[in-house]
Simulated scan of single mutants.
Amino acid sequence: MAKLIGIIIVFASVLGGYVLSSGKLSALMQPFEVLIIGGAALGGFLQANPGSTIVQVFKKSLKMFSSRFTQPFYLEVLRLLYEILNKSRREGMMAIEADIEDPAASPIFSKYPAILKDERMTAFVCDYLRIMSSGNMAPHELEGLFEMELNSLKEELDHPAHAMARVADALPAFGIVAAVLGIVVTMAMLGEAEQAALGQHVGAALVGTFLGILAAYGFFGPLSTSLEHDAKEELNVFEAIKASLVASASGMPPTLAVEFGRKVLYPAHRPSFSELEQAMRGS
């Protein structure tokens, strides 16, 4: 909701100030300027990024108005870890083999559809539970493996934000390109067109600069920052999973292991100790 309000404020402030200054909205309707700027930005974006990053940018941009990283989601992750670790502690690591080999058919994982929907997170949990069930890796070795994977995961999660930041950086320049092309058209008309027509073409050229700067700093720049926050929150959940599993591998009971994970979560939506305890009792 806050992001939608922010977009409305940008439009209302810029266009409202323009209209109140006796500006005409019709003068800003320049589809060819939009074609030049938007097409060039899209083409550069497609050239600069691999297909996987392009898909991620579009997927995450469409979801920018809502975030799944809320307290209920964090509680689901911690409850899942508690249930699976509790079962392995009571019945042995071999008892969870069926759960981690086919999470979709697992009675534990199936209780948490939001996590099952995230294939990467589900695979992350299952892979490390599989490693832990082998019993051949010391806790510090397991933590080292976690760190290496989280470092590569961070790079992957950061790609969409970086890609969008480069688009935002390029938009003012593409606006200038559109403006220069408009001036070229205007200069070619000197001596042939009336003064009013020349003024309209100069105005259209200046609109190109305006649109490039507005798009960069009013929309695509904030979108890049939003994608960056999303990446940090997603990585934070993986770090919480890591903390819980390493604590369990070190011999901590499930209730204490998930507490390690809870403390890693960002404070904004982190469940309290009592909320987590109540959720585990519900499990």
Score class of each variant (00 low, 15 high):
residue 162 H to K: 14
residue 163 A to T: 06
residue 165 A to V: 00
residue 167 V to Q: 10
residue 168 A to K: 09
residue 168 A to H: 12
residue 173 A to C: 05
residue 175 G to A: 06
residue 176 I to P: 01
residue 177 V to F: 14
residue 179 A to D: 00
residue 180 V to S: 10
residue 180 V to N: 08
residue 183 I to Y: 09
residue 184 V to R: 05
residue 186 T to S: 15
residue 192 E to C: 00
residue 192 E to L: 06
residue 196 A to K: 12
residue 197 A to G: 01
residue 198 L to Q: 08
residue 200 Q to Y: 05
residue 200 Q to C: 00
residue 200 Q to T: 06
residue 201 H to V: 02
residue 201 H to D: 02
residue 203 G to K: 04
residue 203 G to R: 07
residue 204 A to V: 02
residue 206 L to F: 13
residue 207 V to Q: 06
residue 213 I to P: 00
residue 214 L to H: 10
residue 214 L to I: 13
residue 217 Y to K: 08
residue 219 F to R: 06
residue 220 F to T: 04
residue 222 P to L: 10
residue 224 S to D: 10
residue 225 T to A: 15
residue 226 S to Q: 13
residue 229 H to Y: 13
residue 230 D to Y: 15
residue 231 A to V: 03
residue 231 A to Y: 12
residue 231 A to D: 04
residue 232 K to R: 14
residue 232 K to M: 09
residue 232 K to P: 00
residue 233 E to F: 11
residue 234 E to I: 01
residue 234 E to C: 04
residue 235 L to S: 09
residue 236 N to L: 05
residue 236 N to K: 10
residue 237 V to D: 04
residue 238 F to M: 03
residue 240 A to D: 02
residue 241 I to V: 13
residue 244 S to M: 02
residue 245 L to N: 05
residue 246 V to I: 10
residue 247 A to Q: 04
residue 247 A to R: 02
residue 247 A to W: 08
residue 249 A to S: 15
residue 249 A to R: 10
residue 251 G to P: 03
residue 252 M to R: 13
residue 253 P to E: 10
residue 253 P to Y: 14
residue 257 A to I: 03
residue 258 V to C: 11
residue 261 G to E: 04
residue 261 G to Q: 07
residue 265 L to H: 11
